[in-house]
Each structure stands twice: as structure tokens, then as C-alpha cells.
Design a protein around this nucleic acid. Sequence first.
DNA 1: ACGGCTTCGTGTCATTCATACACTGACGCT
DNA 2: AGCGTCAGTGTATGAATGACACGAAGCCGT
Lengths: 205, 205
Amino acid sequence: MNDTKPLPPISAAVALFTIREQLEFLRLEGERSRLPTASIDEGETLEACARRALREAAGIEDVFLEQLYTFDGDRDGPRVVVAYYALAPCDRLQIRRPGVGWADPAHASDLAREDRVIVQRACERLAGKLEYAPIAYQFLADRFTLGELQTVYEIIGRQELDKRNFRRRMRASSCLVETRDLRRNGSHRPARLYRLRDTQPAFAG
Amino acid sequence: MNDTKPLPPISAAVALFTIREQLEFLRLEGERSRLPTASIDEGETLEACARRALREAAGIEDVFLEQLYTFDGDRDGPRVVVAYYALAPCDRLQIRRPGVGWADPAHASDLAREDRVIVQRACERLAGKLEYAPIAYQFLADRFTLGELQTVYEIIGRQELDKRNFRRRMRASSCLVETRDLRRNGSHRPARLYRLRDTQPAFAG
DNA sequence: ACGGCTTCGTGTCATTCATACACTGACGCT
DNA sequence: AGCGTCAGTGTATGAATGACACGAAGCCGT
């Protein structure tokens, strides 16, 4: 490929989160685990590069992706690393590759130092944005129950919430649309399904 | 030196804000005005590069600086631009260079398109962070009056505030320390001076 | 068919927080 | 002495938040 060109100067790293029982992130296992990372190609945007990192490492596509922070590379790594975080519901992520798995962000100690910082800052960003941006919905399917939504809030915000107060808040925010359907899930009362309101349908006709 | 090396791949751009009568940003005037920008040097951190851009363009040092966003460069510019915003009180900025001046962020239409986006996003970020981060103080001297502080909040938040409610809020936040001194400023009652409470260093890293 | 288990879904009251609002105080100037 | 100007203070009302307990609906096992 290239001869004595120095290490690639720009790369993108992605911390992909999902919620199964708890919040987890995608990790490439090895002696030292790593986040999916790719060096930027000629003519490629940063976001495309980040998506490619996910695709090449784990075959994952079409996730919510946002820029997190840009780091000066560490000593022997790439010069500059643009970190992204990605969110997706776990049932859309079927990973059947060796060496790719999920880990608890709280015990990410076997990650390279810089990747650990990325994961940690992404968690903080998530908790911060939870209150004013519709990120919780990125962990859920198109239609979801209020119970599921509350669980997401509790896991990301790291605190239990009162069910009735939570529902009141969600209704007041008028982000939700009630559907006509219910979800039967076990030997108990079915739950109503909601979906996220389409942000501004604007005017029709 | 090097033969067909492409344009420098990484640069830092800085939108430096201050408050005089209104919020203003520093601009390098020309046919097309530009923000201070520098290409990264070997072994230089991104932040150092951003500070150098300010120093070289306008002789400005020691300002509050935070990363804003990383952009894919536009067609003919550098490949990747890491944008920063900087804040400083106007009396610490004596600019005596031709071609360097202040402009109103709301009417930045003669800026290059990408720089315009940077200025606009920085303004939004400022307004957003105003409520939960001590950025307002970056526009003031070490010691300041509550009236000055309120003016900063009003300008960045773009809305007038009630004096008594504002003061109550500031006191409740317990970010302020009352000093023993007053500032005599004109033909009226002097105002008490306050300073920002030293925040606990907590953890570094 | 009945009772038991599990999750879904709902309302009220108390407290806290946010908002609106008007006058006196200190100083300098004339 | 009076005026202009900004500094500084408290209260009353409505809004948002937090705490809290029980019936409803479905399934299962007997």
C-alpha cells in the first residue's frame, strides 16, 4: 500500500452501546481489548469512517451515531482519534463473530487507556443528554411500552424512578404517541405500545 | 521538501468570544473573513494548536478554551478541522493588529461557510452550557458584581432576567463568595464584589 | 372456576421551585 | 438640597416535582 508514510493521521473510534440487562458496549477482545476503529480513507467523511469501523469489525450497520470528542492520539496509535458513540436496540445486533462481544462499561479495565476514556465519557454524555434529547428511544424498537422506556431511563440515569411520576413526565413532554395495540408478554396484563412522535410533521396540505 | 503531499490533514479553528456591549467573536478580516486557524505541527496537541492559532493571528494567550466539534474539511481546505471555542473578558484582549477585529455572531454572513457554522454552533453551546457550567464567569474579571454577572447571563441566554430572582438563584447555587470590597463605578451606590468559589479539584485526568 | 402470581395502569397531597412585582439605599453631580 | 442612577432586598402566587397504594388484566395451576 504505502511505503514509509507515517501512521495514519486520522481515525475514528466507536463506542457502541446497547441495553440487554444492563448497559453494555461492544468490544473487540484480545490481549488488550479495543473499540472498533478505522483509519480514514481518502474522500471519506468522519462519520462514514466510524460506520465503516462498526461494519468491518462486527458487521453492524444503520445505528444512531453521534460525535463525542476528538482526542490527541496516544504515543504509538494514530495521531488524532475522533470518537463517536453509537446506540442501538440489542435485538437488532446479532453478532456471530469470534472476538467480538459485549462488556460492562463500569468494568472496562482491560481496554486500552484511551478507549476507556472514550467509554467513560460516552456514558457521561448519555446520562447528561437523557433529559433533553430523545436518546433513550434509540435503545428501543419502533414501538415500545412505557415500562421498557422507564427501564432505559433508569439504567442510563443510574437511579430508580417512580412509575407514576415517570409516566406523567413523559405525557407532559408530549413526545409519545399512544398506539391502539398492546403487547402480550407473559402471564400478566398486556402493556400498551407507544411510539416516538415524528418530530414536526409541519403542515400537511 | 515533500513532493506531492496533500494539503495539511488536520487543523484547529477557534471562535473566540468576548462580551463588550454584546457578544462578539474574533475575526480575521479579508475578502472572505475567517476564524483563526492553524495546521497541526508534529508533536503538537490539538489544544496547543488552537492556542497557537490565536496567538499567531491576534497575539492572544491564556484564554478559556474548549473543544466544540470536529468537521470534515470543505473541498479546498484542510481535511479535518477541529473547532474550539474560547472565552475571555474583553479587557484582557488588546488587539492592535490590522485585519483583526470583532463581529456580531448574528451577522457573520461574510465568513466562510464552515466558519459560520462553527460560530453558530458555539453560540448554541454557550447558551446550553450557561445553566450547568461556570462559563459566564469566563467573561468577567476575577472579581465582579452581580449586575455584571446578570448582564452576561442575559446576553448569552438572550433574555432579560429578573434581578431579584437572579440573585436568589446565584446564592442558592453557592458558586459565589462575597468579598469585603465594593466597586465604585459612577454616581450611584457602589456594588459588592464577588468571586467564583474555588471548585474542588476532585479528580484530574 | 377459582385463587395466586405478575406486570400494567392510575390520582392525590405536600413540598419545592419559578415567576411576577416595587420600593429604599448609597453615591455623585449640579 | 435635590435629582439621577444603579444596588440591593421580600412576598405572594402558580407550576413542577416527589412521595405514596391499590385495582385491573392476563396466565397458570389446581
